[in-house]
Write a protein that binds this DNA or RNA. Structure first.
Lengths: 333, 333
DNA sequence: TTGAAAGCGTTACCAC
DNA sequence: GTGGTAACGCTTTCAA
């Protein structure tokens, strides 16, 4: 393991100053064409690797955007991440990713950790944060984007949609086709805040439309998966006949529920409607296709990238970008 | 936006030297208990945030582990990432993640970029890399782990399984239950290298067992999704009756194929067996459950973390850890 | 078109 | 138990 090759080494080999090497490698036009190509050649030959850490230190610009997601293990959030990564790639920014596991305390810990890396911006999922998280961020005064939600009191920029509105549309759709006895299947109270918003909206909308009181079925701790959806339906067993629609917190839960219904010989949508949320592949491909809401997860990522560009180019007024969530009727309702 | 609070500021406020602050914040026992708590209190009061960039620069240790994955948008790789993140969290290492989109040239570009951040180790998916990637890494002499494969000529450590063996087991299973006319459904040649290994193994094993020649069905460019699986079956139409088993490159493709078969009224597994790969949730939950191979994606991540710990604690001999992939019989075969 | 000097915030090392 | 000094590799700034 030989010592690291630095600009100084390259400079020595070429017979110029480190400063000239620095400029040459950045394609600074004030360096003569000839010197630039010499420097490039020698750098390659010596196996020189640029040190971004040193650059970040010197310029006090890390080139990092810190991002927290509840989980990568969720096709929606993964889509957002991909949209963001790909759209941001050109700008030379690196994403520093952390998963909160749907827990605000974990988010706080993560933010604390991420801030020590001097990110130039912070992207958070959702509008709920601990007080400590909020003050950490405010004290730092760096650009923040909250996504996947439309928080009433945003920390900075926002790219999201109204989970409540989206769910209201879904319930209205169910009511229009004659469903009146709804059950909401989601995670236990507490962890999944967007899920909780959806639940509250289902309950409120049903009430407004004069439907029966919504039963809330606890499918387990967040994140709730396909298995949780199936298990919840299995546990309900015969009591399922009380309902004529199962409103699931996500497509994964809905798919689990749908599969279990098949096993139990329940006719979907004949006896029971099932709806999901998120427009996951599984909803579009399953037979029957699951009625769901497309939240445009990928676009959220892309839009966040656009906001970041705006921010880095000097703009300052907080942006609020609402991404449309739309009903995608399937064959389960 | 006030100037950044540094150790110097804290030192001044406490009335000690920056050096003492540095030690105190690291809970160095040579600093008196009293001083340590004073320093902590003042640091909190001033809103001091530790600068990891400066530390990384000074110590020449970045605290980063660079990881490349073909895609985050794949439950298997996401599981590996999660296993790795969670297991590594305690060590204080941060993951620097990049997605290659299943392309070696993109991997090369990523590795180049990631290396400028001085990662202390590099974790790559698969054993195939461009020559440039290989020499970049070798020149740097940093610990490397290749995962998800058992490369014949590894760059360093390995945590993986044999895609070929796993697939051979699956084909043997199909042959044992009387299937003889197999079709392999996967991505187009080129991109998905683990997929290509699986394909080759299916073809070879079928030949060895005296089955009919395997038809290779191109479901599209990697990554192939549920939709691709469904579309491939739809395109086959009546020609599907030529086969008695569909061996799919992944569970997502298998699920798409299964759903389309349902729509077309094809009896699975009566007329046609379907197998997947990866033990995704969808395989275990769907009705019928899909026969698949559990590759223990999460464990791969955990084991990579263990190897990293070993490496960071000073060990040097290349480790090769084989993670068992096992057949998970379902109801589609 | 090129170079010299200074410094970003932290810590290893040695001194006291 | 604490402090002074120097250095990590780069780029800003000013000078030539």
């Amino acid at each position: 393991m030989t010592a690291r090759v630095t600009m100084r080494d390259v400079a020595q080999a070429v017979g110029v100053s480190p400063m000239t090497v620095s400029r040459a490698l950045r394609d600074d036009k004030t360096v003569s064409e000839k010197t630039r190509s010499r420097v490039r050649a020698v750098a390659a030959e010596l196996g020189y690797v640029y040190d971004t850490t040193a650059q970040a230190f010197r310029t006090q610009k890390s080139g990092f955007v810190a991002v927290t997601l509840p989980s990568v293990n969720n096709a929606n959030f993964a889509d957002t991440f991909r949209g963001l990564s790909e759209a941001i790639a050109g700008s030379g920014m690196q994403i520093l990713l952390g998963a909160t596991n749907y827990r605000l305390e974990k988010e706080e810990e993560l933010v604390r950790q991420l801030l020590t890396r001097n990110p130039e911006a912070l992207v958070l999922t959702g509008g709920n944060h601990t007080d400590a998280t909020r003050s950490l961020i405010k004290a730092r005064g760096l650009p923040v984007i909250e996504m996947w939600d439309l928080p009433p009191d945003p920390l900075g920029h926002v790219v999201g949609f109204s989970n409540a509105d989206a769910m209201a549309t879904l319930v209205t759709h169910l009511a229009a086709s004659g469903r009146r006895r709804l059950a909401f299947v989601g995670a236990s109270e507490g962890a999944d805040l967007r899920g909780a918003e959806r639940r509250a909206s289902v309950v409120a909308t049903a009430q407004k439309l004069g439907l029966d009181d919504v039963a809330v079925i606890d499918a387990g701790p967040a994140p709730v998966s396909m298995r949780h959806g199936a298990a919840a339906v299995e546990r309900l067993g015969a009591r399922l006949s009380v309902f004529d629609a199962l409103v699931c917190v996500s497509d994964t839960v809905a798919f689990g529920a749908l599969s279990e219904c098949r096993r139990m010989g329940i006719d979907v949508p004949g006896q029971l409607a099932i709806t999901g949320f998120g427009h996951f592949d599984v909803a579009a491909v399953s037979d029957p296709r699951i009625t769901t809401v497309d939240v445009n997860a990928r676009l959220i990522g892309t839009e966040v990238a656009r906001v970041l560009e705006t921010v880095f180019s000097g703009a300052s007024a907080p942006l609020e970008i609402e991404v449309a969530a739309r009903l995608v009727p399937g064959e389960t309702s």
